[in-house]
């Protein structure tokens, strides 16, 4: 028994085959890049050197303050530029991933700063007394403790990034929502050959929402569970 109506099956298959992997891939790329950049910036922000602190603070407040769609469009419409001798023109996919990374790394930087500063001063002093340099103190003593506290909010960040990949819709990246939209256009222009009922858009966008819910809900629960366990 197949619960899906005949006309809907190719649509669902298309969204699952084309859209969902694109969404997950973009979320994975941007969450990893955000973590790397964000942890470095957040740690640097704890150094008492005003110009550096201001610079990172500006980075964080700008990319966190702008709507992601604005960042996506800005990067996408940037004219091609030269880096050294290379001519750079970002694709839609790269533009969206970069915009999500700017936003995500700002979130991570702020969270990392808070986590690092929550580690008692004695830990720094004890590590220094053992002969660790600044980098050694951060890498072997402070960050391992601070990053533990970062785990629940980072799962939350992943959920946000997965949802925010839909913003790449605006510049034509074929993520889950775009895949749904294309199928919706096919159906409403009669391209599919199958006769679809009038409630097709309701079902298509409902299906897209359901897919996101199935991915995000377990992660949200996981974040809440980790949060409780940490306290």
């Amino acid at each position: 028994m197949n619960p899906l109506p005949e006309w809907f099956r190719p649509i669902a298959e298309y969204i699952l085959r084309e859209g969902v992997p694109e969404t997950l891939r973009m979320a994975a790329i941007s969450v990893i890049a955000s973590l790397v950049i964000g942890v470095v910036l957040g740690t640097l922000m704890t150094i008492r050197f005003r110009p550096l602190q201001w610079l990172i603070r500006l980075y964080v407040e700008v990319w966190r303050g702008l709507p992601i769609l604005v960042t996506v469009l800005f990067i996408f419409w940037l004219p091609a530029f030269d880096v050294g001798s290379r001519h750079v023109q970002l694709s839609a996919y790269q533009s969206a991933a970069l915009a999500l990374t700017l936003w995500g790394s700002a979130q991570v930087a702020e969270a990392t700063r808070g986590a690092v500063q929550s580690i008692p001063k004695e830990q720094h002093e004890a590590a220094a007394a053992l002969g660790f340099g600044w980098v050694g103190r951060q890498v072997f003593v402070i960050l391992p403790q601070g990053l533990r506290r970062l785990v629940p909010p980072m799962v939350g960040l992943l959920v946000n990034l997965i949802q925010n990949t839909t913003i790449a819709f605006a510049i034509g990246v074929n993520e889950t929502l775009q895949a749904g939209q294309r199928q919706f256009e096919n159906v409403s222009s009669g391209l599919t050959g199958q006769t679809a009922p009038s409630y097709a858009p309701f079902l298509i966008f409902g299906f897209v929402a359901l897919l996101f819910f199935l991915i995000c809900f377990p992660l949200t629960r996981l974040a809440a569970y980790l949060e409780r366990r940490l306290v």
């Binding site: 949802q163 929502l177 966008f205 897209v208 996101f212």
Partner: peptide, 9 residues
């Protein structure tokens, strides 16, 4: 747990 853009659509 669903993107706002999907809700808008």
């Amino acid at each position: 747990n669903t993107p706002i853009l999907v809700q808008i659509f």
